[in-house]
């Protein structure tokens, strides 16, 4: 099985602090400085367990994305009122009339 060189190195040494920061940015999370060490340690621990998958020969094996294959599900594209707008807006942290408001995006 061909492994990318970079990946192989990471798998050996576990996840790095820099990678934790990068992943946190991708996931829109902030990891406080004092928690980075624990995140590195626990993720590396789990990832090292996951590397066992490398032993498995998966040549010519198709990936499974759903355990029960039922094909695509289609329905007529009809306009229907399914949810009540007021009810939906009640859950909005800061509703503004019929809108969801967010911090200013455009200067």
């Amino acid at each position: 099985m061909a492994l990318q060189k970079g990946v192989a190195q990471t798998l050996v040494s576990g996840i790095t602090q820099e990678e934790v920061h990068k992943i946190a940015r991708l996931a829109n999370l902030k990891i406080p400085v004092e928690a980075v060490g624990n995140m590195v340690e626990t993720l590396s621990d789990v990832l090292s367990h996951i590397t066992a998958l490398r032993e498995v020969d998966t040549e010519n094996v198709k990936p499974t994305s759903h355990p029960i294959t039922s094909g695509n599900v289609f329905r007529a594209d009809e306009v229907k009122e399914i949810f009540d707008r007021d009810k939906i807006l009640k859950n909005a942290p800061t509703p503004d009339g019929n809108y969801f408001s967010v911090p200013r995006v455009i200067e």
């Binding site: 990318q4 970079g6 996951i50 498995v56 094996v61 990936p63 994305s65």
Partner: peptide, 20 residues
Amino acid sequence: YVLSAGYYDDYYLKAQKVRT
């Protein structure tokens, strides 16, 4: 992490195959 560029094939796709 397992879905991010560079790791997808080695983790996610691999896991989907072993799932089969």
